Amino acid sequence: MHQQALNVLGQPLQSCSLQPLTGFYRDGCCNTGPDDRGRHIVCIEATAGFLEFSRQRGNDLSTPRPEYSFPGVKPGERWCLCAERFVEALLAGHAPQVVLTSTHEDVLDRLSLETLVAYALDRP
């Protein structure tokens, strides 16, 4: 299903976070597949500002949800974010930084590599 997934640099997709465990498949990677309707493919490093922006938009990533084994995301932690949420944050001036080596190449259908590089923690 996710074998040979590539990142936006055309290299093998690297892990985004094991603490907290992220990814649509909760495998630590921003892998995607046909059942991932939200396209959780952008590896971000959360900031307090971004987390508050996301909460205000109806996607509270910072509150723990033990019933879903979700510890909540804290500033400084990495998380596989939905592509559209990243675009929304970008347009609103709240885009978090991204990890290119851990961001799935499918996001290039929605965002340019140049835009991602501008927000990259790991510039090529």
Score class of each variant (00 low, 15 high):
88 E>M: 15
73 V>E: 01
119 Y>K: 09
79 W>H: 11
58 G>E: 08
84 E>L: 09
77 E>Y: 01
19 Q>K: 13
34 P>C: 06
97 Q>C: 12
113 L>V: 10
32 T>E: 04
104 H>W: 05
67 E>K: 12
53 F>N: 12
86 F>Q: 01
74 K>D: 13
101 T>F: 00
51 L>Y: 14
101 T>W: 00
95 A>I: 02
90 L>R: 13
116 L>I: 06
9 L>I: 09
104 H>P: 06
37 R>Y: 11
66 P>R: 03
46 A>W: 03
100 L>W: 06
22 T>V: 11
100 L>C: 03
58 G>K: 05
103 T>G: 04
118 A>G: 10
6 L>A: 07
107 V>D: 01
124 P>H: 07
107 V>E: 03
15 S>H: 09
103 T>R: 10
49 G>L: 09
101 T>L: 09
18 L>K: 11
80 C>A: 15
77 E>Q: 15
124 P>L: 06
27 D>G: 14
9 L>S: 09
50 F>A: 10
55 R>H: 11
66 P>C: 06
71 P>M: 07
105 E>C: 13
37 R>L: 13
17 S>F: 09
40 H>Y: 10
37 R>M: 01
20 P>E: 08
85 R>S: 04
86 F>W: 12
107 V>N: 09
79 W>Y: 15
118 A>H: 08
29 C>A: 12
98 V>F: 01
16 C>L: 13
71 P>F: 06
120 A>K: 04
